[in-house]
Design a binder for these strands. Structure first.
Lengths: 223, 223, 223, 223
DNA sequence: AATGAATGAGGGTTCATTCAT
DNA sequence: AATGAATGAACCCTCATTCAT
């Protein structure tokens, strides 16, 4: 919780990233409306004018923070997403492989807890269409829904619904987990939920009815 | 979205409630940190001093708004909760009764959409322990988890986990629904998710209206 | 220090006086700039509108409070002043009589301590010519100086100076007394000071040189 | 009374001191409760935010103003106090030396009239224990009483009382002097009072310049 | 005789932002 | 590359005051 130590001489690149990281933490704690240039500067060990020297304005800072948030999240799960895409190109992954993939996703997500709270808070705030992060989350969520839909398509009857359920569970469980002070084993709960939603491993993948839904790739309508 | 018309002479009781309602809307749109006394006053058709005459301070206003939010939510689902409790006292409800109950809950929750967004935003903000609504949501979520656990206990192997899953699904689906501009039929999705989580096969899955997957409830306009 | 009890039905006259008394106390505690209509009302057990109903405006309240202060002070020492004037008319009082008179004055003044602090504070504030109580204190102090001058004239060489000294001692000792938490016997100190300033009782009254000064009666110039 | 001219670029040190000086004047005129950040800022030629940039809050400004007041008063009479202390260490000062010392003190005090009124007003306000300057004046007055007691001890029977009388006379005469629009020669009056209180006859009373009683020092204009 | 409701003006304070250095 | 000084706008809040009741 303490502001990270700042060496008095940091390369500008590093300092920029450092400021954005601190901004992410602050937004997690106070919401995006609670981000104050002065406090951010204090936590980073420089003056408020110093922060604005890097970003020009608070608005710009917020936008860059959102991008950075995306980048950091991507750095954590991008490899898994690429694995998933690769498997999809080689034909549908087996249910066993799918379960393993989902398991790894959840476990990775929980290993960078400094992203969890900011993402949850921003995601909720960004429900309002005028929020600066609205578009970011809409795209992100669409891509996730799309990927999940394609992943589960071979194994379930209503892949769009199932994808929705998986994403809802991920968000909802994460929220409960954080709200309860990390009071339970979220990965175990996730695994159990995944099994419940995908049907037990015994279910034959052939039961799926892929033709009933139009599965889209990429954002349906990039507004 | 427009400020509701205000007659120049309202009974104090009504006016209080009116202010709180407008405050709830504002918090839904801007987050609790984005609540401005002046704008709230403007929307209610009185001066900022007029608002503070009723609540003394913004802090107090926020606290009372949270309570009012609880009251309004309770007014919507309390009857159902009482029904559930009554059934529990008379022995465990049948799976069919349980499904019906959960269905009604979701459908009721969606019928007062003015509560949904504020609740979602506040719930996320309140993850931070120092948030004024933190305790409120902790209690609310605990009671919900407790109730759901007792309800599903006769029908599943891990009732605590299942309750968690149901709550996670409810929050997560609601968030997707709002975020997508009410772009799908959330009640249908909920029903389907409930069946998946509670163990479908033994129940008549046909109740989930599979053909309706593409049908949306609420405005489907992509803003 | 607690607000005096207010019966729910008081005659208007009594209530007026009650409000003014409470105002005097408040001014003693916070200065005349620290008098707040709301707090005054609270202490009197009525609404702020109720206070203004009696006095019309805060300005008017302040003015009436000053007059009331004068009246209450007069009620305490007026009899003594009259005694002094009577003695003066019957020829100069003896030194013994003078000392007795001054002693009684001081002892009376200390017996209504609720007036002391307000008077001290207002007197200091009213040094500024634009203060609403400026004229009041100027007249009061001039009359006091005049009276003292005439009283001591037969016994001292420079009666104007001696009168000034006596008044200065009275104010200064009172201030020390209040400031020290009533930490010494102010009447004894006063007696001692009076003796010092007037010269011991052994001094012959004939030493006085009344002709050297113009002794005025009444306010010199009532501006 | 006019705001002193302010060059648009002042060194921060100077500006701080300038602000405090103007605050002292304002408190003298309106009382500490009448100090308004906006007006202070206007008089100093900057914005209210500019004033708060230096002091953080009005409360802090007031506290620092009191300290500054102490510092400025000390700058005027500290040398004399040190002289007195030195004389005390070398054995008690002669009565003649004591009178000279007291004379110089009063005359110095009157030479910086911009401190007089603020000190008088604050001292009276600070009688209330909760006043922010209460402690300051309690200490200051205690030290003064202590010093005077030690100074007069060799020459009078009740040195504590005599010290009290001297201090009371100083405050009281100053108040009369200011209240009368500097309408008399306060130094002469002080000298005469000192002689009276310390026991005159043994000293050469002729030093008190009897003929000057009607002569005033400072502006004699009756406003 | 007295109040509850409401307000406009002004208070201190915070905030993002600017600019000379 | 970064800051100290300063600001205007907006914020929450308090105040004396009004007015229908």
């Amino acid at each position: 919780m303490e502001p990270s130590e700042v060496s008095s001489r940091e390369s500008p690149e590093v300092r920029r990233s450092h400021i954005l990281g601190e901004a992410i933490r602050l937004v997690g704690q106070r919401g995006s409306g609670g981000l104050r240039v002065q406090e951010l500067a204090r936590r980073c060990g420089l003056s408020n004018a110093g922060v604005l020297y890097y970003f020009g304005s608070k608005e710009e800072l917020l936008l860059q923070m959102i991008q950075e948030l995306g980048r950091r999240e991507a750095a954590v799960i991008e490899p898994l997403v690429r694995t998933a895409e690769r498997e999809l190109e080689q034909g549908a992954p087996s249910k066993r492989a799918l379960l393993a993939l989902l398991h790894t996703m959840a476990s990775r997500a929980c290993q960078s807890p400094e992203l969890g709270l900011p993402l949850l808070v921003l995601q909720a705030e960004a429900l309002e269409p005028r929020h600066p992060a609205h578009r970011f989350f809409r795209n992100r969520d669409r891509m996730a829904a799309d990927l999940f839909t394609r992943l589960v398509a071979p194994h379930v009857k209503y892949p769009v619904s199932t994808a929705r359920q998986l994403l809802a569970l991920m968000t909802g469980l994460l929220q409960q987990w954080v709200g309860s002070g990390r009071g339970f084993d979220i990965v175990a709960e996730w695994d159990r939920a995944v099994v419940a939603v995908l049907g037990g491993p015994a279910v034959c993948a052939g039961e799926a009815a892929p033709g009933r839904e139009q599965i889209t790739r990429g954002a349906a309508r990039a507004e």
